[in-house]
Write a protein that binds this DNA or RNA. Structure first.
Length: 627
DNA sequence: ATAGGGTTAG
Protein backbone atom coordinates (compact mmCIF):
# COMPACT_ATOMS: atom_id res chain seq x y z
CA UNK A 1 0.00 0.00 0.00
CA UNK A 2 2.77 2.33 0.93
CA UNK A 3 4.58 1.55 -2.28
CA UNK A 4 1.45 2.41 -4.21
CA UNK A 5 1.20 5.85 -2.64
CA UNK A 6 4.84 6.47 -3.35
CA UNK A 7 4.59 5.73 -7.03
CA UNK A 8 1.39 7.71 -7.35
CA UNK A 9 3.17 10.68 -5.83
CA UNK A 10 6.02 10.11 -8.21
CA UNK A 11 3.68 10.07 -11.18
CA UNK A 12 1.86 13.20 -10.06
CA UNK A 13 5.09 15.09 -9.66
CA UNK A 14 7.23 13.76 -12.47
CA UNK A 15 9.89 16.42 -11.92
CA UNK A 16 11.23 14.71 -8.85
CA UNK A 17 12.35 11.79 -11.00
CA UNK A 18 15.89 12.95 -11.62
CA UNK A 19 17.51 10.06 -13.48
CA UNK A 20 16.85 7.41 -16.07
CA UNK A 21 17.50 4.87 -13.35
CA UNK A 22 14.70 6.25 -11.20
CA UNK A 23 12.38 6.27 -14.20
CA UNK A 24 13.06 2.59 -14.75
CA UNK A 25 12.41 1.83 -11.11
CA UNK A 26 9.10 3.61 -11.41
CA UNK A 27 8.38 1.58 -14.51
CA UNK A 28 8.98 -1.61 -12.55
CA UNK A 29 6.60 -0.47 -9.83
CA UNK A 30 3.89 0.22 -12.37
CA UNK A 31 4.35 -3.17 -13.97
CA UNK A 32 3.93 -4.73 -10.56
CA UNK A 33 0.95 -2.75 -9.37
CA UNK A 34 -1.03 -1.34 -12.30
CA UNK A 35 0.37 -2.75 -15.54
CA UNK A 36 -2.50 -1.67 -17.76
CA UNK A 37 -3.45 1.81 -16.61
CA UNK A 38 -3.21 4.05 -19.70
CA UNK A 39 -2.99 7.17 -17.52
CA UNK A 40 -0.02 5.87 -15.57
CA UNK A 41 1.68 4.48 -18.62
CA UNK A 42 1.28 7.82 -20.39
CA UNK A 43 2.85 9.63 -17.49
CA UNK A 44 5.70 7.19 -17.60
CA UNK A 45 6.05 7.79 -21.33
CA UNK A 46 6.21 11.48 -20.60
CA UNK A 47 8.95 10.91 -18.04
CA UNK A 48 10.90 8.64 -20.38
CA UNK A 49 10.59 11.10 -23.24
CA UNK A 50 11.83 13.91 -21.01
CA UNK A 51 15.01 11.88 -20.66
CA UNK A 52 14.95 11.46 -24.41
CA UNK A 53 14.54 7.68 -24.09
CA UNK A 54 12.76 7.10 -27.37
CA UNK A 55 13.04 3.34 -27.37
CA UNK A 56 11.55 2.93 -23.90
CA UNK A 57 8.81 5.45 -24.67
CA UNK A 58 7.86 3.68 -27.89
CA UNK A 59 7.72 0.27 -26.23
CA UNK A 60 5.15 1.59 -23.80
CA UNK A 61 3.31 3.59 -26.43
CA UNK A 62 2.90 0.66 -28.79
CA UNK A 63 1.28 -1.34 -26.03
CA UNK A 64 -1.45 1.26 -25.50
CA UNK A 65 -4.80 0.72 -27.16
CA UNK A 66 -6.06 4.27 -27.36
CA UNK A 67 -3.24 6.49 -26.19
CA UNK A 68 -4.22 9.70 -24.38
CA UNK A 69 -3.01 13.13 -25.58
CA UNK A 70 -0.16 13.11 -23.10
CA UNK A 71 1.25 9.94 -24.65
CA UNK A 72 0.99 11.27 -28.21
CA UNK A 73 2.51 14.60 -27.29
CA UNK A 74 5.43 12.98 -25.48
CA UNK A 75 6.29 10.69 -28.36
CA UNK A 76 5.95 13.49 -30.90
CA UNK A 77 8.35 15.64 -28.93
CA UNK A 78 10.76 12.76 -28.50
CA UNK A 79 10.68 12.06 -32.24
CA UNK A 80 11.53 15.67 -33.00
CA UNK A 81 14.32 15.69 -30.43
CA UNK A 82 15.80 12.66 -32.18
CA UNK A 83 15.50 14.13 -35.65
CA UNK A 84 12.73 11.71 -36.66
CA UNK A 85 10.70 14.47 -38.19
CA UNK A 86 8.51 12.59 -40.62
CA UNK A 87 7.61 10.17 -37.88
CA UNK A 88 6.54 13.00 -35.61
CA UNK A 89 4.21 14.33 -38.29
CA UNK A 90 2.89 10.86 -39.05
CA UNK A 91 2.07 10.32 -35.42
CA UNK A 92 0.25 13.63 -35.27
CA UNK A 93 -1.86 12.58 -38.26
CA UNK A 94 -2.54 9.27 -36.60
CA UNK A 95 -3.61 11.10 -33.49
CA UNK A 96 -6.04 13.23 -35.49
CA UNK A 97 -7.38 10.14 -37.24
CA UNK A 98 -8.00 8.46 -33.90
CA UNK A 99 -10.18 11.39 -32.87
CA UNK A 100 -7.90 12.48 -30.04
CA UNK A 101 -8.07 16.23 -29.65
CA UNK A 102 -4.61 17.79 -29.52
CA UNK A 103 -3.88 20.18 -26.67
CA UNK A 104 -1.70 23.25 -26.93
CA UNK A 105 1.37 21.33 -25.77
CA UNK A 106 1.50 19.35 -28.99
CA UNK A 107 2.05 22.20 -31.42
CA UNK A 108 5.36 23.79 -30.48
CA UNK A 109 7.39 20.66 -31.17
CA UNK A 110 5.24 19.73 -34.16
CA UNK A 111 5.80 23.16 -35.70
CA UNK A 112 9.50 22.83 -35.07
CA UNK A 113 9.33 19.61 -37.03
CA UNK A 114 7.68 21.38 -39.98
CA UNK A 115 10.35 24.06 -39.83
CA UNK A 116 13.16 21.50 -39.88
CA UNK A 117 11.46 19.68 -42.75
CA UNK A 118 11.00 22.99 -44.59
CA UNK A 119 7.53 21.71 -45.39
CA UNK A 120 5.58 24.89 -45.93
CA UNK A 121 2.29 23.29 -46.92
CA UNK A 122 2.28 21.06 -43.91
CA UNK A 123 3.16 23.94 -41.61
CA UNK A 124 0.39 26.07 -43.00
CA UNK A 125 -2.21 23.34 -42.67
CA UNK A 126 -1.17 22.78 -39.08
CA UNK A 127 -1.48 26.52 -38.55
CA UNK A 128 -5.03 26.18 -39.89
CA UNK A 129 -5.67 23.38 -37.46
CA UNK A 130 -4.37 25.54 -34.61
CA UNK A 131 -6.77 28.33 -35.56
CA UNK A 132 -9.72 25.94 -35.84
CA UNK A 133 -8.95 24.59 -32.37
CA UNK A 134 -8.77 28.15 -31.03
CA UNK A 135 -5.18 27.74 -29.91
CA UNK A 136 -3.79 30.60 -31.94
CA UNK A 137 -3.39 32.72 -28.84
CA UNK A 138 -1.20 30.30 -26.95
CA UNK A 139 2.15 31.95 -26.24
CA UNK A 140 4.34 28.94 -26.94
CA UNK A 141 2.41 27.97 -30.05
CA UNK A 142 2.69 31.49 -31.47
CA UNK A 143 6.40 31.60 -30.72
CA UNK A 144 6.86 28.32 -32.55
CA UNK A 145 4.74 29.56 -35.47
CA UNK A 146 6.89 32.66 -35.87
CA UNK A 147 10.05 30.60 -35.71
CA UNK A 148 8.68 28.26 -38.36
CA UNK A 149 7.74 30.98 -40.84
CA UNK A 150 11.08 32.69 -40.34
CA UNK A 151 12.88 29.43 -41.10
CA UNK A 152 10.72 28.86 -44.20
CA UNK A 153 11.64 32.26 -45.53
CA UNK A 154 15.31 31.53 -44.94
CA UNK A 155 15.11 28.16 -46.68
CA UNK A 156 13.30 29.79 -49.55
CA UNK A 157 15.96 32.45 -49.96
CA UNK A 158 18.66 29.76 -49.99
CA UNK A 159 16.73 27.78 -52.60
CA UNK A 160 16.55 30.87 -54.75
CA UNK A 161 20.30 30.85 -55.31
CA UNK A 162 20.37 27.19 -56.36
CA UNK A 163 20.17 25.86 -59.83
CA UNK A 164 16.63 24.86 -60.70
CA UNK A 165 17.88 21.49 -61.92
CA UNK A 166 16.95 20.28 -58.46
CA UNK A 167 13.50 21.85 -58.63
CA UNK A 168 12.68 20.26 -61.98
CA UNK A 169 13.70 16.82 -60.75
CA UNK A 170 11.63 17.19 -57.64
CA UNK A 171 8.49 18.02 -59.61
CA UNK A 172 8.30 14.36 -60.58
CA UNK A 173 8.87 13.20 -57.08
CA UNK A 174 5.95 14.61 -55.20
CA UNK A 175 4.29 11.47 -54.01
CA UNK A 176 5.59 11.06 -50.55
CA UNK A 177 3.03 9.35 -48.41
CA UNK A 178 3.15 9.62 -44.70
CA UNK A 179 2.94 6.10 -43.53
CA UNK A 180 1.91 5.65 -40.00
CA UNK A 181 4.40 3.09 -38.88
CA UNK A 182 6.38 3.93 -35.85
CA UNK A 183 9.60 2.38 -36.98
CA UNK A 184 12.83 4.15 -36.55
CA UNK A 185 14.19 4.42 -40.04
CA UNK A 186 17.80 3.60 -40.75
CA UNK A 187 19.88 6.72 -40.73
CA UNK A 188 21.72 7.62 -43.89
CA UNK A 189 23.75 10.34 -42.28
CA UNK A 190 24.02 12.12 -38.98
CA UNK A 191 20.70 13.90 -38.95
CA UNK A 192 18.43 12.56 -41.61
CA UNK A 193 16.52 9.50 -42.52
CA UNK A 194 15.55 8.25 -45.94
CA UNK A 195 12.08 9.69 -45.51
CA UNK A 196 13.52 13.01 -44.48
CA UNK A 197 15.39 13.14 -47.74
CA UNK A 198 12.26 12.45 -49.77
CA UNK A 199 10.78 15.34 -47.92
CA UNK A 200 13.61 17.66 -48.67
CA UNK A 201 13.13 17.03 -52.38
CA UNK A 202 9.43 17.71 -52.24
CA UNK A 203 9.93 21.03 -50.56
CA UNK A 204 11.78 22.54 -53.42
CA UNK A 205 8.61 22.60 -55.47
CA UNK A 206 6.69 23.94 -52.50
CA UNK A 207 9.15 26.74 -52.35
CA UNK A 208 8.58 27.73 -55.95
CA UNK A 209 5.03 28.52 -55.01
CA UNK A 210 6.12 30.86 -52.27
CA UNK A 211 7.85 32.87 -54.91
CA UNK A 212 4.52 34.03 -56.25
CA UNK A 213 3.14 34.99 -52.87
CA UNK A 214 5.88 37.12 -51.43
CA UNK A 215 7.74 37.02 -48.17
CA UNK A 216 6.89 34.65 -45.39
CA UNK A 217 8.10 37.33 -43.02
CA UNK A 218 4.63 38.79 -43.45
CA UNK A 219 3.26 35.67 -41.78
CA UNK A 220 5.71 36.13 -38.90
CA UNK A 221 4.59 39.72 -38.52
CA UNK A 222 0.93 38.75 -38.64
CA UNK A 223 1.32 36.21 -35.85
CA UNK A 224 3.41 38.63 -33.80
CA UNK A 225 0.94 41.47 -34.08
CA UNK A 226 -2.02 39.30 -33.12
CA UNK A 227 -0.40 38.01 -29.96
CA UNK A 228 -2.04 39.21 -26.74
CA UNK A 229 1.00 38.58 -24.57
CA UNK A 230 4.61 38.43 -25.71
CA UNK A 231 7.55 37.15 -23.73
CA UNK A 232 11.27 37.57 -24.37
CA UNK A 233 11.24 34.47 -26.57
CA UNK A 234 8.55 36.05 -28.78
CA UNK A 235 10.70 39.13 -29.27
CA UNK A 236 13.87 37.14 -29.80
CA UNK A 237 12.15 34.93 -32.33
CA UNK A 238 10.83 37.78 -34.43
CA UNK A 239 14.15 39.63 -34.14
CA UNK A 240 16.14 36.56 -35.20
CA UNK A 241 13.70 35.92 -38.05
CA UNK A 242 14.25 39.40 -39.43
CA UNK A 243 18.00 39.31 -38.82
CA UNK A 244 18.41 35.96 -40.57
CA UNK A 245 16.42 37.15 -43.55
CA UNK A 246 18.37 40.31 -44.16
CA UNK A 247 15.77 42.66 -42.66
CA UNK A 248 18.39 44.31 -40.52
CA UNK A 249 16.72 47.65 -39.87
CA UNK A 250 13.46 45.93 -38.93
CA UNK A 251 15.36 43.69 -36.50
CA UNK A 252 17.18 46.61 -34.89
CA UNK A 253 13.93 48.53 -34.55
CA UNK A 254 12.35 45.58 -32.78
CA UNK A 255 15.25 45.47 -30.33
CA UNK A 256 14.56 49.08 -29.43
CA UNK A 257 10.83 48.37 -29.18
CA UNK A 258 11.09 45.42 -26.84
CA UNK A 259 11.90 47.83 -24.03
CA UNK A 260 8.33 49.15 -24.27
CA UNK A 261 7.19 45.69 -23.26
CA UNK A 262 9.48 45.95 -20.20
CA UNK A 263 11.74 43.31 -21.66
CA UNK A 264 15.50 43.72 -21.88
CA UNK A 265 17.67 42.22 -24.60
CA UNK A 266 19.24 39.00 -23.36
CA UNK A 267 22.04 36.82 -24.69
CA UNK A 268 19.75 35.43 -27.41
CA UNK A 269 18.90 38.93 -28.61
CA UNK A 270 22.54 39.96 -28.75
CA UNK A 271 23.71 36.95 -30.68
CA UNK A 272 21.08 37.70 -33.32
CA UNK A 273 22.02 41.34 -33.51
CA UNK A 274 25.81 41.04 -33.63
CA UNK A 275 25.93 39.44 -37.10
CA UNK A 276 24.06 42.50 -38.38
CA UNK A 277 26.85 44.82 -37.27
CA UNK A 278 29.36 42.36 -38.69
CA UNK A 279 27.56 42.58 -42.02
CA UNK A 280 27.47 46.37 -41.79
CA UNK A 281 31.16 46.36 -40.75
CA UNK A 282 30.07 48.69 -37.96
CA UNK A 283 32.83 48.30 -35.41
CA UNK A 284 31.45 51.07 -33.23
CA UNK A 285 28.00 49.50 -32.77
CA UNK A 286 29.58 46.07 -32.44
CA UNK A 287 31.75 47.29 -29.61
CA UNK A 288 28.70 48.82 -27.94
CA UNK A 289 27.06 45.40 -27.94
CA UNK A 290 30.28 43.90 -26.60
CA UNK A 291 30.16 46.39 -23.73
CA UNK A 292 26.50 45.64 -23.03
CA UNK A 293 27.30 41.91 -23.04
CA UNK A 294 30.15 42.42 -20.56
CA UNK A 295 28.03 44.54 -18.24
CA UNK A 296 25.35 41.87 -18.18
CA UNK A 297 27.73 38.96 -17.79
CA UNK A 298 26.98 37.54 -21.23
CA UNK A 299 30.58 37.65 -22.40
CA UNK A 300 31.15 34.10 -21.18
CA UNK A 301 28.38 32.87 -23.44
CA UNK A 302 29.87 30.82 -26.25
CA UNK A 303 27.12 32.04 -28.62
CA UNK A 304 27.93 35.69 -27.93
CA UNK A 305 31.63 34.89 -28.09
CA UNK A 306 31.37 33.32 -31.54
CA UNK A 307 29.41 36.22 -32.95
CA UNK A 308 31.81 38.72 -31.36
CA UNK A 309 34.74 36.90 -32.96
CA UNK A 310 32.89 37.02 -36.26
CA UNK A 311 32.08 40.71 -35.88
CA UNK A 312 35.66 41.69 -35.02
CA UNK A 313 37.01 39.56 -37.86
CA UNK A 314 34.65 41.18 -40.37
CA UNK A 315 35.89 44.57 -39.15
CA UNK A 316 39.49 43.42 -39.74
CA UNK A 317 40.21 43.46 -35.99
CA UNK A 318 41.81 40.05 -35.68
CA UNK A 319 43.56 41.01 -32.46
CA UNK A 320 40.22 41.73 -30.77
CA UNK A 321 38.74 38.56 -32.22
CA UNK A 322 41.62 36.55 -30.76
CA UNK A 323 41.19 38.17 -27.38
CA UNK A 324 37.49 37.37 -27.26
CA UNK A 325 38.22 33.82 -28.34
CA UNK A 326 40.94 33.30 -25.76
CA UNK A 327 38.86 34.38 -22.78
CA UNK A 328 35.94 32.08 -23.63
CA UNK A 329 35.77 29.41 -20.93
CA UNK A 330 34.53 26.77 -23.36
CA UNK A 331 34.98 26.25 -27.07
CA UNK A 332 32.58 24.36 -29.23
CA UNK A 333 32.92 23.59 -32.91
CA UNK A 334 31.21 26.84 -33.86
CA UNK A 335 33.48 29.10 -31.84
CA UNK A 336 36.47 27.25 -33.33
CA UNK A 337 35.05 27.85 -36.77
CA UNK A 338 34.64 31.55 -36.00
CA UNK A 339 38.29 32.00 -35.15
CA UNK A 340 39.50 29.81 -38.02
CA UNK A 341 37.37 31.69 -40.53
CA UNK A 342 38.30 35.00 -38.91
CA UNK A 343 42.01 34.34 -39.45
CA UNK A 344 41.64 33.01 -42.97
CA UNK A 345 39.38 35.87 -44.07
CA UNK A 346 42.01 38.31 -42.90
CA UNK A 347 44.83 36.57 -44.72
CA UNK A 348 46.33 34.94 -41.62
CA UNK A 349 46.46 31.53 -43.24
CA UNK A 350 49.08 29.96 -40.99
CA UNK A 351 47.21 31.05 -37.87
CA UNK A 352 44.01 29.62 -39.32
CA UNK A 353 45.73 26.30 -39.93
CA UNK A 354 47.18 26.37 -36.42
CA UNK A 355 43.71 26.84 -34.93
CA UNK A 356 42.39 24.02 -37.09
CA UNK A 357 45.05 21.72 -35.65
CA UNK A 358 44.36 22.95 -32.14
CA UNK A 359 40.69 22.20 -32.62
CA UNK A 360 41.50 18.64 -33.63
CA UNK A 361 43.86 18.30 -30.69
CA UNK A 362 41.09 19.50 -28.37
CA UNK A 363 39.02 16.57 -29.71
CA UNK A 364 36.40 18.86 -31.20
CA UNK A 365 35.00 17.21 -34.29
CA UNK A 366 35.28 19.35 -37.40
CA UNK A 367 31.97 20.05 -39.13
CA UNK A 368 31.50 20.96 -42.81
CA UNK A 369 31.91 24.64 -41.98
CA UNK A 370 35.33 23.93 -40.49
CA UNK A 371 36.53 22.62 -43.83
CA UNK A 372 34.99 25.31 -45.99
CA UNK A 373 36.57 27.87 -43.66
CA UNK A 374 40.07 26.44 -43.71
CA UNK A 375 40.23 25.42 -47.38
CA UNK A 376 40.80 28.97 -48.71
CA UNK A 377 43.99 28.98 -46.62
CA UNK A 378 45.31 26.05 -48.68
CA UNK A 379 44.06 27.65 -51.87
CA UNK A 380 45.77 30.97 -51.18
CA UNK A 381 48.98 29.38 -49.92
CA UNK A 382 48.84 27.12 -52.98
CA UNK A 383 49.43 24.32 -50.52
CA UNK A 384 48.26 21.38 -52.60
CA UNK A 385 49.64 18.74 -50.23
CA UNK A 386 47.62 20.21 -47.36
CA UNK A 387 44.51 20.63 -49.48
CA UNK A 388 44.68 17.02 -50.61
CA UNK A 389 45.16 15.85 -47.05
CA UNK A 390 42.07 17.79 -45.99
CA UNK A 391 40.16 16.45 -48.99
CA UNK A 392 40.91 12.93 -47.78
CA UNK A 393 39.71 13.89 -44.33
CA UNK A 394 36.52 15.34 -45.86
CA UNK A 395 35.81 12.12 -47.74
CA UNK A 396 36.43 9.99 -44.66
CA UNK A 397 33.93 11.96 -42.55
CA UNK A 398 31.45 12.06 -45.42
CA UNK A 399 31.28 15.81 -45.97
CA UNK A 400 32.08 15.66 -49.66
CA UNK A 401 28.42 16.15 -50.56
CA UNK A 402 28.28 19.53 -48.83
CA UNK A 403 27.99 22.40 -51.28
CA UNK A 404 30.18 24.80 -49.30
CA UNK A 405 32.88 22.18 -48.83
CA UNK A 406 32.83 21.17 -52.50
CA UNK A 407 32.97 24.77 -53.68
CA UNK A 408 35.99 25.42 -51.53
CA UNK A 409 37.64 22.28 -52.95
CA UNK A 410 36.88 23.40 -56.50
CA UNK A 411 38.58 26.69 -55.74
CA UNK A 412 41.54 25.08 -53.99
CA UNK A 413 42.30 22.61 -56.80
CA UNK A 414 41.88 25.32 -59.42
CA UNK A 415 44.24 27.67 -57.60
CA UNK A 416 46.77 24.87 -57.15
CA UNK A 417 46.76 24.27 -60.90
CA UNK A 418 44.56 21.19 -60.99
CA UNK A 419 41.66 22.54 -63.01
CA UNK A 420 40.62 19.07 -64.17
CA UNK A 421 40.24 17.83 -60.61
CA UNK A 422 38.33 21.02 -59.82
CA UNK A 423 35.97 20.30 -62.71
CA UNK A 424 35.61 16.68 -61.68
CA UNK A 425 34.46 17.76 -58.22
CA UNK A 426 32.19 20.44 -59.67
CA UNK A 427 30.50 17.94 -62.00
CA UNK A 428 29.81 15.57 -59.15
CA UNK A 429 27.98 18.14 -57.00
CA UNK A 430 24.23 17.59 -56.96
CA UNK A 431 23.35 21.25 -56.56
CA UNK A 432 25.21 24.32 -57.64
CA UNK A 433 24.64 27.74 -56.23
CA UNK A 434 25.97 30.96 -57.64
CA UNK A 435 29.16 30.74 -55.61
CA UNK A 436 30.04 27.24 -56.80
CA UNK A 437 29.40 28.26 -60.40
CA UNK A 438 31.58 31.30 -59.92
CA UNK A 439 34.34 29.21 -58.35
CA UNK A 440 34.66 26.88 -61.35
CA UNK A 441 34.29 29.77 -63.80
CA UNK A 442 37.01 31.69 -61.99
CA UNK A 443 39.12 28.53 -62.03
CA UNK A 444 38.97 28.32 -65.82
CA UNK A 445 39.56 32.07 -66.04
CA UNK A 446 42.75 31.67 -63.99
CA UNK A 447 43.82 28.91 -66.36
CA UNK A 448 43.13 31.08 -69.38
CA UNK A 449 40.54 28.67 -70.75
CA UNK A 450 38.07 31.27 -71.94
CA UNK A 451 35.95 28.89 -74.01
CA UNK A 452 35.10 26.88 -70.89
CA UNK A 453 34.36 30.08 -69.03
CA UNK A 454 31.89 31.29 -71.63
CA UNK A 455 30.08 27.98 -71.97
CA UNK A 456 29.85 27.47 -68.20
CA UNK A 457 28.56 30.99 -67.75
CA UNK A 458 25.82 30.31 -70.27
CA UNK A 459 25.00 27.03 -68.59
CA UNK A 460 24.68 28.81 -65.27
CA UNK A 461 22.30 31.37 -66.71
CA UNK A 462 20.29 28.61 -68.38
CA UNK A 463 19.86 26.82 -65.09
CA UNK A 464 18.34 29.95 -63.64
CA UNK A 465 21.21 30.92 -61.36
CA UNK A 466 21.68 34.67 -61.24
CA UNK A 467 25.31 35.70 -61.63
CA UNK A 468 26.46 38.43 -59.27
CA UNK A 469 29.25 40.98 -59.12
CA UNK A 470 31.97 38.37 -58.65
CA UNK A 471 30.67 36.10 -61.42
CA UNK A 472 31.08 38.96 -63.87
CA UNK A 473 34.59 39.66 -62.60
CA UNK A 474 35.39 36.05 -63.47
CA UNK A 475 33.91 36.04 -66.94
CA UNK A 476 35.35 39.45 -67.81
CA UNK A 477 38.80 38.44 -66.56
CA UNK A 478 38.70 35.46 -68.90
CA UNK A 479 37.51 37.53 -71.87
CA UNK A 480 40.16 40.10 -71.15
CA UNK A 481 42.98 37.58 -71.01
CA UNK A 482 41.76 35.86 -74.17
CA UNK A 483 41.32 39.14 -76.01
CA UNK A 484 37.62 38.40 -76.60
CA UNK A 485 36.46 41.95 -77.21
CA UNK A 486 32.91 41.25 -78.42
CA UNK A 487 32.08 38.80 -75.67
CA UNK A 488 33.48 41.15 -73.07
CA UNK A 489 31.26 44.01 -74.21
CA UNK A 490 28.28 41.68 -74.33
CA UNK A 491 28.83 40.59 -70.72
CA UNK A 492 29.64 44.11 -69.57
CA UNK A 493 26.36 45.37 -70.99
CA UNK A 494 24.37 42.35 -69.85
CA UNK A 495 25.58 42.91 -66.30
CA UNK A 496 23.92 46.31 -66.09
CA UNK A 497 20.98 45.76 -68.43
CA UNK A 498 19.87 42.23 -67.49
CA UNK A 499 21.03 41.97 -63.91
CA UNK A 500 21.09 45.54 -62.67
CA UNK A 501 24.61 45.18 -61.29
CA UNK A 502 26.58 48.41 -61.12
CA UNK A 503 29.99 47.70 -62.66
CA UNK A 504 32.81 48.17 -60.21
CA UNK A 505 36.51 48.74 -60.34
CA UNK A 506 37.32 45.15 -61.32
CA UNK A 507 34.92 45.14 -64.25
CA UNK A 508 36.20 48.45 -65.57
CA UNK A 509 39.75 47.21 -65.08
CA UNK A 510 39.09 44.13 -67.20
CA UNK A 511 37.54 46.20 -69.97
CA UNK A 512 40.24 48.85 -69.87
CA UNK A 513 42.92 46.20 -69.89
CA UNK A 514 41.32 44.47 -72.87
CA UNK A 515 40.90 47.70 -74.82
CA UNK A 516 44.39 48.79 -73.90
CA UNK A 517 46.03 45.61 -75.09
CA UNK A 518 44.03 45.71 -78.31
CA UNK A 519 45.46 49.18 -78.89
CA UNK A 520 42.06 50.86 -78.53
CA UNK A 521 43.60 53.34 -76.15
CA UNK A 522 41.21 56.23 -76.74
CA UNK A 523 38.23 53.98 -76.18
CA UNK A 524 39.80 52.79 -72.93
CA UNK A 525 40.46 56.37 -71.89
CA UNK A 526 36.86 57.25 -72.52
CA UNK A 527 35.59 54.26 -70.55
CA UNK A 528 37.78 55.04 -67.55
CA UNK A 529 36.81 58.69 -67.66
CA UNK A 530 33.16 57.64 -67.46
CA UNK A 531 33.79 55.96 -64.12
CA UNK A 532 32.53 57.58 -60.96
CA UNK A 533 35.93 57.80 -59.30
CA UNK A 534 38.60 55.99 -61.31
CA UNK A 535 41.21 54.41 -59.06
CA UNK A 536 44.90 54.97 -59.69
CA UNK A 537 45.49 51.34 -60.55
CA UNK A 538 43.21 51.41 -63.52
CA UNK A 539 44.93 54.53 -64.92
CA UNK A 540 48.25 52.81 -64.35
CA UNK A 541 47.24 49.82 -66.42
CA UNK A 542 46.15 52.11 -69.23
CA UNK A 543 49.45 53.92 -68.88
CA UNK A 544 51.20 50.61 -69.27
CA UNK A 545 49.17 49.97 -72.44
CA UNK A 546 50.26 53.38 -73.71
CA UNK A 547 53.86 52.31 -73.22
CA UNK A 548 53.29 49.09 -75.17
CA UNK A 549 51.64 51.00 -78.01
CA UNK A 550 54.09 53.90 -77.75
CA UNK A 551 51.27 56.45 -77.45
CA UNK A 552 53.03 59.33 -75.75
CA UNK A 553 50.24 61.89 -76.06
CA UNK A 554 47.70 59.75 -74.29
CA UNK A 555 50.29 58.60 -71.76
CA UNK A 556 50.82 62.21 -70.75
CA UNK A 557 47.08 62.75 -70.39
CA UNK A 558 46.73 59.60 -68.30
CA UNK A 559 49.71 60.47 -66.11
CA UNK A 560 48.20 63.88 -65.49
CA UNK A 561 45.06 62.22 -64.18
CA UNK A 562 47.16 60.18 -61.78
CA UNK A 563 49.35 63.05 -60.61
CA UNK A 564 46.22 65.06 -59.86
CA UNK A 565 45.41 62.77 -56.97
CA UNK A 566 48.88 61.38 -56.26
CA UNK A 567 51.65 63.70 -57.41
CA UNK A 568 54.40 61.33 -56.30
CA UNK A 569 53.13 58.08 -57.81
CA UNK A 570 56.31 56.16 -58.53
CA UNK A 571 54.68 53.73 -60.93
CA UNK A 572 53.27 56.52 -63.04
CA UNK A 573 56.67 58.25 -63.30
CA UNK A 574 58.35 55.05 -64.34
CA UNK A 575 55.69 54.04 -66.86
CA UNK A 576 55.65 57.50 -68.37
CA UNK A 577 59.43 57.51 -68.53
CA UNK A 578 59.37 54.09 -70.19
CA UNK A 579 56.80 55.32 -72.68
CA UNK A 580 59.09 58.19 -73.63
CA UNK A 581 61.92 55.70 -73.93
CA UNK A 582 59.83 53.40 -76.13
CA UNK A 583 59.13 56.37 -78.38
CA UNK A 584 62.85 57.26 -78.22
CA UNK A 585 62.13 60.66 -76.68
CA UNK A 586 65.28 60.66 -74.57
CA UNK A 587 65.11 64.31 -73.58
CA UNK A 588 61.75 63.69 -71.90
CA UNK A 589 63.17 60.63 -70.19
CA UNK A 590 66.00 62.72 -68.75
CA UNK A 591 63.59 65.46 -67.70
CA UNK A 592 61.43 62.97 -65.81
CA UNK A 593 64.41 61.34 -64.12
CA UNK A 594 65.60 64.76 -62.98
CA UNK A 595 62.12 65.46 -61.57
CA UNK A 596 62.04 62.13 -59.77
CA UNK A 597 65.45 62.70 -58.19
CA UNK A 598 64.34 66.14 -57.03
CA UNK A 599 61.21 64.74 -55.44
CA UNK A 600 63.11 61.88 -53.88
CA UNK A 601 61.08 59.27 -55.72
CA UNK A 602 62.83 55.90 -55.86
CA UNK A 603 61.84 52.67 -57.42
CA UNK A 604 61.76 49.90 -54.86
CA UNK A 605 63.16 46.65 -56.22
CA UNK A 606 60.73 43.90 -57.12
CA UNK A 607 61.20 40.43 -55.80
CA UNK A 608 59.61 37.04 -56.14
CA UNK A 609 59.88 33.74 -54.37
CA UNK A 610 59.49 30.11 -55.15
CA UNK A 611 59.23 26.95 -53.09
CA UNK A 612 62.11 24.52 -53.71
CA UNK A 613 62.58 21.44 -51.56
CA UNK A 614 60.65 22.93 -48.60
CA UNK A 615 62.66 26.13 -48.73
CA UNK A 616 61.35 29.40 -50.05
CA UNK A 617 64.17 31.58 -51.35
CA UNK A 618 63.31 35.10 -52.48
CA UNK A 619 64.79 36.60 -55.64
CA UNK A 620 65.31 40.32 -55.77
CA UNK A 621 65.32 41.67 -59.30
CA UNK A 622 68.87 41.97 -60.60
CA UNK A 623 70.06 39.53 -57.94
CA UNK A 624 72.38 36.91 -59.44
CA UNK A 625 73.62 35.32 -56.23
CA UNK A 626 71.66 32.11 -56.81
CA UNK A 627 73.27 31.45 -60.16
C1' DA B 1 6.77 23.08 -24.89
C1' DT B 2 9.11 27.86 -28.13
C1' DA B 3 14.29 31.50 -29.47
C1' DG B 4 20.56 32.61 -30.60
C1' DG B 5 26.54 32.10 -32.77
C1' DG B 6 30.39 29.89 -37.47
C1' DT B 7 31.08 28.54 -44.01
C1' DT B 8 32.49 28.58 -50.14
C1' DA B 9 33.84 32.47 -55.39
C1' DG B 10 37.15 38.31 -56.05
Amino acid sequence: MAAQTIFRTLLDRPNIISSKYQAKQLHAQILKLEPSSPIHLSRLISIYSNFNLLHESLLLFNALHSPPVLAYKSIIRCYVANGLLVQSVALFLQMRASGTKPDHHVFPSLLKSCALLSDLKLGESIHGCIIRLGMDFDLYTCNALMNMYGKFQKAFAAMDSFSNKFRIESAHDQKVTLNQTRYIFPKTNANSTILDQCYRKRNCSDMVEVDRRGSLMDSVKKVFEKMLKRDVVSWNTVIAGNAENGKYEEALMLVREMGNDNLKPDSFTLSSVLPIFAEYVDLHKGKEIHGYAMRHGFDNDVFIGSSLVGMYAKCARVEDALQVFNILPQHDSISWNSIIAGCVQNGLFDEGLRFFHQMLKAKVKPVPVSFSSIMPACANLIALHLGKQLHGFIIRVGYDDNMFVSSSLVDMYAKCGYIKVARWIFDRMDVHDMVSWTAIIMGYALHGQACHVVSLFEQMEMEGVRPNYVSFVAVLTACSHAGMMNEAWRYFNSMTQNYGIVPGLEHYACMADLLGRAGKLDEAFELISSMHRPAEGIWLSLLSACRVHKNVDLAEKVAENIFEVDPENTGAYILLSNTYAAAQRWKDVARLQYLMRNKGIKKSPAFSWIEVKNKTPAFVSGDKSHL
